[in-house]
Amino acid sequence: MKERTFTKRLSAALVPAVPYLWLGVFFLVPFLIVLKISLSDTAIAQPPYKPVFEWSDIAAFFSALDLENFELLVEDDLYFRATLSSVRIAALSTVLLLLVGFPIAYGMARAPERHRSLLVALVILPFWTSFLIRIYAWIAILKPEGLLTQGLMSLGAISEPIEILNTEWAVYIGIVYAYLPFMVLPLYATLEKMDDTLLEAALDLGSTPWRSFWTITVPLAMPGIIAGSLLCFIPAVGEFVIPDLLGGSETLMIGRQLWSEFFSNRDWPLASAVAILLLIVLVAPIVIYRDVEARRVETRP
C-alpha cells in the first residue's frame, strides 16, 4: 500500500516535472549559452567562436570574459540605429494595427450572434496559411509594375508607377497584414462581452456617440487593447522576414542585423550580443505580456 502511494505521488509529480524540465533545457539553458557566447571572442573555426567556459576553471572563466562585442555594439552606431528604427517601426505598426483592427473587431462584436463564429473563423483562416506565402503575395502587389500600380493606373488614379516595395511603407503594410488576426481577436474578445446597455444609458443621458466611445467603449476594451498591442509589438521588433522581403536594403531592423551577422558574416559572438541587446529592449514588454496573459486566462469564468 505504501509503495502504491509512492508511485502515485511520483506519477503525479511527473505532470509538471516533464514539461518544466523540457522548457528548462530547451528554452532557459539556451539563453544562458547566448549570454556566454556573446562574451567570447570570434574564432575562425567550427563552431566559429572560442569557448570561454570550462566547468573546471572558474577563475579562467572570469578572466576570459570580455565585453568586446558589446563595446562594438556601442561604438558602431549601426546597432543603435537599427534598434531605434525597429522600435519605431514596431510601435507605428502597432498603432496602425489598432486603427485597422478596432473597427473590424467592433463590427464583428456587433454582428448578429449567429454570424459571429463564422466571422471569427474568417479572421483566423489566413493565420493558418503560411506567413511566408502571405508576405510573398504582397511582393507581386507592391512591385513597381505590380498589381497595385496596374489597378490604380487602369482606374486613372495615377499615371506613374508608385514605389512602395523596398521602402519602409511596404514593411508597415506587411506587418499590419500579417499581424492583424493577433490584434483583432483579443479586441473582439473584450468587445463581445461588453454590455450595450451602458452605451444606451450614456446616449439617453445626452452623451454624443463619439464621447461615449472614448469614455465607455475604449476603457472597457483596454484589456484587449493591451493584450493585442503587446502581442503585435513584441514580435514585430525582432521581425526578420517582413523587412527582408519587403523592406529593401534601406530598412534597418535589428532582427535582420542579427541574421546577417550570423549567416553572412558568421560572427556568432556578435550575433549573440545583438540577441542580448534585442532581449534587453523586449524584457519589460514580455514580462507585462506574461502577467496580462496569465491573469486573462486565469480569471476567465
Binding site: L23, F26, F31, L230, P235, G238, F240, L258, Y289, E293
Partner: peptide, 20 residues
C-alpha cells in the same frame, strides 16, 4: 517559460537553440 516563447522574436529563439 510558457508565455515567453510565443512572443519572443524568432531570431532569438532560433539562435539560442542553435548555440545550445
Amino acid at each position: 517559460m510558457v508565455y515567453a516563447p510565443m512572443v519572443m522574436p524568432e531570431v532569438i529563439t532560433g539562435l539560442s537553440l542553435l548555440l545550445f
